[in-house]
Amino acid sequence: MSNIRIDVKSRTPIFEQLCAGIREEILSGAMAPGEALPSVRALACELAINPNTIQKAYAELERQKLISSAPGRGSFVSDDIRPAMGAFEEKILADLRAAVHRARLCSIAKEKLTELIDKEWEGTKP
């Protein structure tokens, strides 16, 4: 789990950085379904952040059905993360819309954007 990086100087709350970091690990497949997440204690010590913040991030990811917790055994990546993925579609599309908007304001050609999308799409194929 040492792939998660927390930037304490960032404006983004640590809680959100944690959620985003773990979500990325799960959606990218770096953490497989069923895999155990590090314990709150281990992650708190490793990242030097407040255990309560980690507890909260785990609760949020559980609410998003990305992970599940078994009392006394810890937290695990959900066996089926597809339902959770749908929830991010809206957010991703909104981000993309905003990016397209900004690109247009900066007079970046439409062709350049579509070319970029095609290239990235092929490049990130698993």
């Binding site: 708190a44 952040i49 407040n50 255990p51």
Partner: peptide, 25 residues
């Protein structure tokens, strides 16, 4: 972090500087 996670220690940290507290509290 370890003491809080392991033993549920409660800490109260006084400071006149917000920056000192932002990332731990």
């Amino acid at each position: 972090a370890r003491e809080v996670a392991e033993r549920k220690m409660t800490a109260v940290i006084a400071s006149h500087s917000l920056r000192e507290l932002e990332d731990i509290c």
